[in-house]
Amino acid sequence: MTPGFIIAALLIFAASIFTVRSSKLVHAVLWLGAMLASTAVLFIQLDAPFLAGIQLLLYVGGVMTLMIFGVMLTKKSGDGELRTESAPALRGLVISLALFGLLAGGIFSMTNGAPALQKPEEVASIAASVLGEHWLAFETLSVLLLAAMVGAILLARKRDAGAPESGKASPR
């Protein structure tokens, strides 16, 4: 347990709690960004700098940006607070604590509790693995991304888009 790990872990955990609890959606999105960025720091500590870079680029730069757009486009005028009633909150707390207990029990009863560190993966070997051994998964993923893109465009389009619509270039 290095101090770097403890700090990163605390940051990640705290940011995740704020993500799910914060009463303003905008703050929740920003906390999510903080959590993802501190996870990138943890990835660097785990000798996965490539994944850390991708995380910064894709998650913080991409996913979070999309979320920001979602928040801004679905903003009701004059709303602000997201309330959680106490009954579902208690139910959720019990369920997630129970799951955590289960998982923690499993983790602490691992037979090989503390394996030794292995040689870190090189970027080149990741690339060889993605494009070599896992090429089929890679290609399937590209098809999936295409399908998601088409689906997202179809879903987000206005229904009456057949006619030459008025707001073609304007952000809705």
Binding site: A37, G53, L56, L57
Partner: peptide
């Protein structure tokens, strides 16, 4: 080893 990626990542973060 992945300097280019990190630089671009920070550039995106600046938004």
């Amino acid at each position: 080893d992945v300097g280019v990626l990190l630089v671009i990542g920070f550039g995106g973060l600046a938004m």
